[in-house]
Amino acid sequence: MASRHEIKCINKTNSTIAHERIERIGGMNGTGTWWSLTQQEAIAGIEEGRWGFYVARGVAAVNVNVATSTYGNKYIKTENDGEQSNNLLSLPECPL
């Protein structure tokens, strides 16, 4: 079973192309240290069943899924929660 992790921040690129907008995702471990993955590492982890990711929205958790662009490029995005069009892109920048 995949371990679930909350995404608390992202690092964006300057691209407007869906599969290139997010460079890295990150969050905090139980020890208080930050973890960080590239978008490609996160996609591989989701597809291999190692990890599941979510974004917290108040008391709700919005799942992160792998999507495929019209040109066949994979990227991550949140499920539609009826409020935010893209919960990932609204997160703050991760510390580097």
Rank of each mutant, 00 (worst) to 15 (best):
M1F: 14
M1C: 02
A2N: 09
A2C: 02
A2R: 11
A2G: 03
A2S: 07
R4A: 07
R4D: 09
E6K: 15
I7M: 00
C9F: 15
C9P: 06
C9I: 14
I10R: 04
I10V: 15
N11M: 09
N11W: 10
N11P: 01
K12Y: 05
N14T: 11
N14F: 13
N14W: 14
S15M: 12
S15T: 01
A18D: 15
A18C: 09
A18P: 12
H19W: 11
H19G: 04
H19R: 03
R21A: 07
R21E: 13
E23F: 01
E23W: 00
E23Y: 01
R24D: 12
I25Q: 03
I25H: 05
I25F: 04
M28F: 02
M28Y: 04
M28S: 09
N29Q: 13
G30C: 04
T31V: 13
T31I: 15
T31F: 11
G32L: 02
G32N: 01
T33M: 13
T33W: 04
T33Y: 00
W35L: 02
W35D: 00
S36L: 03
S36Q: 10
L37Q: 07
L37H: 10
T38I: 05
T38V: 06
Q40I: 08
Q40F: 05
A42E: 12
A44P: 00
A44N: 09
A44F: 01
G45P: 06
I46K: 00
E47Y: 00
E47F: 02
E47Q: 08
E48A: 11
E48L: 12
G49I: 10
G49K: 07
R50Y: 02
G52P: 04
F53R: 10
Y54K: 14
Y54P: 06
Y54M: 14
G58N: 05
V59C: 07
A60P: 01
A60S: 08
A60W: 07
A60Q: 06
A61F: 01
A61D: 04
A61T: 08
A61W: 00
V62S: 09
N63K: 13
V64G: 07
V64K: 06
N65V: 12
V66Q: 03
A67E: 06
A67W: 11
T68Q: 13
T70N: 14
G72C: 05
N73W: 02
N73F: 06
N73P: 09
K74Y: 04
K74Q: 06
K74E: 09
Y75T: 02
Y75E: 07
I76F: 10
I76C: 09
K77F: 10
K77W: 09
T78Y: 08
E79P: 03
D81W: 02
G82N: 01
G82F: 15
E83V: 12
E83C: 04
Q84D: 05
Q84T: 08
Q84S: 08
S85R: 14
N86I: 08
N86P: 03
N87S: 14
N87D: 12
L88H: 00
L88M: 04
L88G: 05
S90T: 06
S90I: 04
L91N: 00
P92V: 11
E93Q: 11
C94S: 02
P95W: 08
